[in-house]
Design a protein around this nucleic acid. Structure first.
Lengths: 201, 201
DNA sequence: CTTATTTGGGAACGATCGCTCCCGTATGTC
DNA sequence: GACATACGGGAGCGATCGTTCCCAAATAAG
């Protein structure tokens, strides 16, 4: 029963996510966002309360799209576990280069920029980390169950190593390291899942 | 032949490093730095030209102290290679908690906050990465030479994996993960250096 | 003691920050 | 058509940003 909105709220969140992702929280101003959307600060504030709330929306949107896509790619669906893992990691370090490179992972960028100071943000980054960890865990369990991975594989340890390696890969992609350079790391991480020696020295 | 400076330039750099490290570049204002040092912006500017230059000084100081200390701890000096590696990584994820936790690595924080946009900064973060990579490489070569590590160890691949894992560990420490939680990752990373199976499935 | 020179710091520059007010405009309800 | 309601946007809020200017204080050189 009033004048309808002339811009799509979801579009605004998408644009905000893109901008926050590339520049970070502090380096992105409300007017930057408005310029990208042809919106004035007042319209943005009426819809999203304030910058911090809009940032949370952006984080949630990222998790619902990009993070969800990553989780989807971690779903084995009958394919070889190692291949799924490798394709997933290669995609992680090359996916943002649809446009320009060096965007890294929005969650990782946020976690390092804002640390543990903001509780609401920390909650979301931690949840995103946990989802990834569990997805990797499921994949490894499936691989061990199907016999593709060693029966005595220490899944917990492997999950931690793979998850941490992925964070490092995201940092390196943000730092400008090309996917081809990172492929060595990815292959080494996957080789980790091979059976260990029977008689360790 | 004029009035001498009343503050120690090096002290200022140390304080600036601490502040930039904890808050990042964009969230640290020149007045924040001045307040910590009981200095006015004008004095800071006369000495350090501008904020960006001071930040470069802070990065250089970090590399000359904290990074150098890390490199020192990576020097085997006759100790078992695996032990050196493990102690080094454990120190990496717990060293900044002299005061409060969650500072992570200044270089990693900088690389993710500013990405590849700034050439002078990128140059420094990349150099810091390379020094670490080479130190790990030397250690692995020494271990392989002494027989502590498998003769057929793929040093290049292991260096990439360990280096990337360390970046991930730094992110996780910044995100508030306790050293005890990260120890699993560290042990898994080191186990990577054990001999592989003779007949891989 | 002068003089040249550099310091420290208070004040202020224009620009931008996050955010709010207000008013003309457009739309659903009656 | 009249009215209530939410919109878009321009203007502006006080605060802070990075940076500069200027002047009194301090000191080395003469």
């Amino acid at each position: 029963m009033a004048r309808p909105r002339q811009f799509d709220e979801q579009d605004a969140v998408v644009t905000a996510t893109d901008l926050f992702w590339r520049r970070g929280y502090n380096a992105t101003s409300v007017r930057d966002l408005g310029a990208e959307l042809k919106l004035t600060p007042s319209s943005l504030y009426r819809t999203f309360t304030d910058k911090h709330t809009l940032f949370l929306r952006a984080l949630d949107h990222y998790r619902a799209t990009d993070s969800a896509e990553a989780e989807r790619r971690l779903d084995a669906a009958g394919r070889p576990v190692r291949e799924v893992l490798r394709d997933w990691m290669l995609w992680l370090v090359s996916c943002p280069s649809d446009g320009e490179p060096g965007r890294g992972c929005f969650v990782v960028n946020t976690a390092t920029e804002l640390g543990t100071a903001d509780a609401e943000i920390r909650e979301r980054t931690e949840a995103a980390f946990e989802v990834t960890r569990q997805a990797v865990r499921s994949l490894l369990l499936e691989g061990r169950g199907s016999g593709e991975l060693p029966a005595d594989l220490d899944v917990d340890a492997s999950v931690e190593l793979l998850f941490t390696t992925v964070l490092g890969l995201r940092v390196r992609e943000r730092a400008g390291h090309a996917p081809e350079r990172l492929a060595t790391t990815i292959d080494a991480a996957i080789k980790t899942l091979d059976p260990a020696s029977v008689q360790p020295s």
